[in-house]
């Protein structure tokens, strides 16, 4: 059974379709890595799946409230401590406590530090630890390893492996090799939208007036 399926999906950036006719399934315990050059629509696809922007065509089949999204920004409050940041998201999502998440990303010693004293890599680790306290099954990750060092990337790979082993799934836009057997890749270049065709339902001004 797949945790998230996408049928004939089209997503829009700047009023124009970037991806068309996209189909994929991610079963439980599997991860899919998105590939494609800059501007291929990786971020747009992830934001659409997360429900932050509407899809113009096709459908996204997944159980309600099963998606956790992590974008370029970590959503941290500099004035709060590491533990406070995590427990806030845990309370909002009604997920598990923050203890396992802290130890998984090696943040236990930093728990009492205010987030503004953290380095970029430490902030990123905290942002990724947030995924664990959401308690959600499908992770959508946009360049999760930016500003992480090799050791931290390994930590993240371990966390991801544990998540997949417990029946989760993940869709990741990344260019580095995480070294996981459960990962398959999807190249978005093949689904690039063809300009010139006039769609029945224009996505925005740029399609309605061209």
């Amino acid at each position: 059974m797949s945790l998230i399926s996408v049928r004939d999906l089209a997503v829009v950036r700047g009023g124009l379709r970037v991806i068309e006719g996209l189909d994929f399934d991610i079963p439980a315990g599997q991860a899919l890595v998105l590939r494609g050059p800059n501007g291929a629509g990786k971020t747009t696809l992830l934001r659409t799946l997360a429900g932050l922007q509407p899809a113009v065509a096709g459908e996204i089949i997944c159980p309600p409230e099963s998606i956790a999204y992590a974008g370029h920004a970590d959503g941290l409050k500099p004035a709060l401590t590491v533990a406070e940041n995590l427990s806030f998201w845990s309370a909002v999502f009604g997920g598990p406590g923050s203890g396992p998440a802290l130890s998984a990303m090696n943040l236990t010693e930093l728990a009492a530090r205010p987030a503004h004293t953290l380095s970029a890599g430490q902030k990123r680790r905290l942002g990724l630890a947030r995924l664990m306290v959401t308690g959600r099954a499908v992770w959508l990750l946009d360049e999760p390893t930016v500003s992480l060092d090799t050791a931290s990337v390994a930590l993240f790979a371990d966390m991801l492996r544990a998540h997949l082993a417990s029946g989760g799934a993940a869709l990741i836009a990344t260019h580095i090799d995480l070294g996981l057997a459960e990962i398959s890749t999807l190249d978005l270049t093949a689904y690039r939208a063809q300009p010139g065709r006039k769609p029945a339902r224009p996505a925005g001004f740029n399609e309605a007036f061209a």
Binding site: R47, A50, G51, L52, E65, I67, A68, Y69, G71, H72, A73, D74, G75, L76, K77, P78, W89, V92, F93, G94, R130
Partner: peptide, 11 residues
């Protein structure tokens, strides 16, 4: 800081 994105995807 991206919190708004996350709040919008929260339950």
């Amino acid at each position: 800081d991206g919190s708004l994105d996350l709040l919008a995807t929260a339950p």
